[in-house]
Design a binder for these strands. Structure first.
Lengths: 334, 334
DNA sequence: CTGTTAGCGCCTTCAT
DNA sequence: ATGAAGGCGCTAACAG
């Protein structure tokens, strides 16, 4: 329970100077004797002195920690986003506190409270599928802790946010399938609480309408993102008298589970039924029959951008205006 | 740059009591007026007071943060381990600072220094493939920050560590292949710096010897865990006049890349050449031809155990004796 | 039951 | 060029 790092006080004592002098030497303050500065730096090396950022916090009011709250680290999409966040924040001396919400609203709320308690200087959030409100984000703002949302954003929230142009992505995916001569296209969509769900639907409908294909309500399923639900809804699609020829999945994980159901029921992937999905996860390249296309959303870049905005909000608390950044997605054919 | 959380001082002022009283009320100190306590709690709610753990740190000498350093969050193995760590530490009010080393020693070293600077109470490390020394871990110990290693451990290090019984795992994997009638078995092993590499080799050799199969030195390759190297070494194996019938891979990611090379060169997976690997990653179940067996290493449990040991080291700094915990692995046939 | 005092490690005026 | 003093938010003796 006790860090025993040497303190400035000890260095000062061994050098027979005041703590102030040591402090200034460490900050390369101009008005300090060259000789003294050198001695201090030597001793710092020798004693392995590390400044106590916790104490600095009390003065400067910042911990150089930021918090990240997201559904699952195990989804590559999010771990890539973390990498983007980490790379831009560490450059500025910030570390990253990671908490998983597991798509549970209560956990998400607790995570944010906990992060505030731990004194983070800012928070980046990708909300849980359950989350329907942004009041828990307000709490952070109230404490002067800026919040930036990414990917799973709540657009009516007052926070800056970074997300990809899902409507366009979904539109292009459907257009691609239609160009392949497919017309009966189903949509395994996400939970209705998510903005991203609505946008996929918009792109889907838009493309169908443009190509004058009637929208079949039975082809549109809303999932809660659990495996069981994916299996159930896929079976519902496969039980229809007018079988869909293709499925646009909410993301690759959903596609994978759905594809498995199809295979088990004797459908040949990308022959009897085609798949297109979001995320473009790298491991799909190992599949014999991956989705024929996937919408790359550049999670690393999204994390990067979100971190940049947050860093800016932290550094210039005054000038922080709400930003909405759209990362262009890209349809990758396989 | 400024958290504007209400402080105890303000609560005290509004209630016309001293800060101490508020402090005690908050801790449910026995010697405090019931009435006062209630008033304090009410005001805390109303003002949204959150204790400043940074300030508490100065007294208690603990930040309730722990650091985790590991190669890649994008490897499911590690993100599962994080979940195990997170679940056991959050129970005790600790948060997790995550830093990725990307298998680079310098990054790992910098990560540890940074974590110390951020005042973490303890650190959990899975070392980079490049790492050959544990001197950078000593630095933490010197600062009174306990360190626990997991999975990628350095066993001659003075730290507690948690790892799986790789020798047994490799042995069972090879025995399994032999029981399938395969005798020419190659080993795509990890970098020689890792303990885990040597252990895989031990298990491999032991099994072959027990079944009186000569060890062919050309069947044993040491990889640096990059994709390029995996491709190169797999090609070397496939160029041998006596082709291996099976390959034991360092882990599933290696197996996947290696399998792809085999496929490209016209070998049929699990017909012409069989694969077995470590990790038992969930997404392998989506493959048409996954490795016929994989050694499950229970990363979640490993993280959990490492966190438990660390929590104990932090809470009882005196009684911390070096522990070495072995998590039993399990051969999963597919 | 409550208040006073001192101090955790560091930074920042204000003096010297 | 250097020191002394005060304070960031909180806790913990020590007094009442």
């Amino acid at each position: 329970m006790a860090h025993n790092t040497p303190t400035m006080k000890e260095i000062a004592k061994r050098l027979g100077v005041s703590v102030t002098t040591v402090s200034r030497a460490l900050q390369n303050h101009p008005r300090i004797g060259l000789r003294t500065r050198e001695q201090v730096h030597e001793l710092v090396q020798e004693m392995g002195y590390v400044p106590n950022s916790t104490a600095i916090y009390l003065k400067k009011r910042c911990t150089f920690n930021i918090g990240v709250v997201l559904p699952f680290l195990t989804e590559q999409f999010f771990s890539l986003a973390i990498s983007g966040i980490e790379d831009t924040t560490t450059k500025q001396g910030y570390s990253v506190l990671v908490v998983q919400s597991r798509n549970n609203f209560e956990r998400e709320k607790a995570a944010i409270t906990s992060l505030i308690k731990h004194g983070v200087d800012g928070i980046i959030v990708s909300v849980a599928s359950e989350t329907q409100t942004y009041l828990h984000l307000d709490e952070a703002q109230k404490h002067g802790v800026p919040v930036v949302l990414f990917d799973r954003v709540i657009k009516r929230a007052p926070n800056s946010c970074v997300y990809s142009d899902i409507v366009v992505g979904a539109y292009e995916a459907i257009a691609f399938l239609i160009s392949r001569g497919l017309r009966r296209i189903a949509l395994l969509n996400g939970p209705n609480t998510l903005q991203a769900t609505e946008e996929r639907l918009r792109g889907y409908v838009k493309a169908l309408q443009e190509y004058e294909i009637p929208v079949n309500i039975h082809y549109i399923k809303s999932l809660n993102l659990t495996k069981e639900d994916t299996i159930r809804k896929t079976n519902e699609l496969l039980n229809l008298s007018e079988l869909p020829q293709a499925i646009l999945a909410f993301h690759d994980y959903i596609a994978l589970d759905s594809m498995q159901v199809c295979k088990e029921r004797g459908f040949r992937i990308n022959k009897d039924i085609f798949f297109v999905s979001f995320s473009n996860l790298s491991f799909c390249s190992y599949l014999d029959n991956p989705p024929i296309a996937s919408i790359e959303q550049f999670p690393y870049e999204m994390g990067e951008k979100a971190a940049q905005i947050l860093m800016n909000d932290i550094t210039n608390p005054g000038s922080s205006i709400r930003q909405e950044v759209v990362i262009k997605s890209k349809l990758i054919q396989r």
